[in-house]
């Protein structure tokens, strides 16, 4: 009897999340994004595509780390050959570096705009285009209504949207995004006595997940895929300044 009830509950949960814009994506069902335990934070244990993800980057170093992590995601999102739109104001991304993460920079179309309003309207229009794998926008701030519009646009087309909030000025209010990420660089590791810099490593903070639980993870990019690693707790990070949070998850 209890087993039956649990089954019903699980089915109802799936229906609820489907109604909220979560649909199992064909990419996720095949072999996932290789994010390991991070994926377990999301409903149904899959990284949700076809929704909006929000990345916070307080410093330029964090922005670079976020872009590296995003590039790893893009490699999976774009693997069926679809292209990506990268909308920004004052873009600093150096396209050749995407190659390191398995993304062909030629497949990415860049839009350099000036006004935030323009960025948002272009992003909304682009999210309705099913021929795209992903639409990424760099902008400092977004409010709930704006993010809700974007979320609604993705639900129809199943295009994944990424908001990279560089140096956010306003305090963080609730958005309609399905996940809020914060990526920070971590010291790399290399064999003792050998000079050089190792594989890129990041601390991944999942601050908010819609219908899921957040968490803190350590991950590196090695041999063209994500790989978790154990953080050296011997050298704790003194600067874990998380931004002041306000409001609930929408």
């Amino acid at each position: 009897m209890t087993g039956e009830k649990q089954e019903i509950l699980a089915r109802l949960r799936q229906q609820i999340s489907a109604a909220q814009g979560f649909k199992p994506s064909p990419i996720a069902t095949s072999d996932g994004f290789g994010l390991g335990e991070i994926e377990a934070c999301f409903p149904n244990d899959v990284f949700p595509t076809g929704t909006i993800h929000e990345f916070l980057a307080e410093h330029p170093e964090d922005a670079a780390a976020s872009e590296g992590f995003i590039a790893g995601l893009l490699a999976k999102l774009m693997r069926n050959g679809n292209s990506c739109l990268w909308i920004s104001h004052n873009r600093k991304l150096f396209p050749p570096s995407l190659e390191t993460y398995g993304v062909d920079p030629q497949q990415i179309i860049f839009l350099d705009l000036y006004y935030t309003k323009e960025i948002l309207s272009v992003m909304e229009e682009a999210l309705k285009c099913e021929g795209l794998a992903c639409v990424l926008a760099e902008l400092p701030d977004i409010d709930f209504a704006q993010s809700r519009r974007l979320q609604l646009a993705t639900e129809k087309s199943h295009v994944t949207g990424i908001l990279l909030r560089k140096e956010p000025k306003r305090s963080l209010s609730a958005t309609a995004c399905s996940a809020r990420w914060q990526i920070k660089p971590q010291p790399t590791e290399i064999l003792e006595g050998i000079p050089g810099v190792g594989n890129p490593r990041w601390e991944v903070n999942l601050l908010k997940v819609k219908n899921g639980e957040g968490g803190k993870f350590y991950i590196e990019w090695a041999e063209d895929k994500f790989a978790p690693f154990e953080s050296q707790e011997t050298n704790p990070q003194p600067q874990t300044t998380t931004l002041p949070e306000r409001g609930l998850i929408a």
Partner: peptide
């Protein structure tokens, strides 16, 4: 990039924000 809907989207965006804002490297 050969996708028709993408080409149409870019045409519309070029009309909106100007073709000089759209780049591919």
């Amino acid at each position: 990039l050969a996708d028709q809907s993408l080409a149409q989207l870019l045409d519309r965006l070029a009309g909106k924000v100007g073709p000089q804002a759209i780049r591919r490297y």
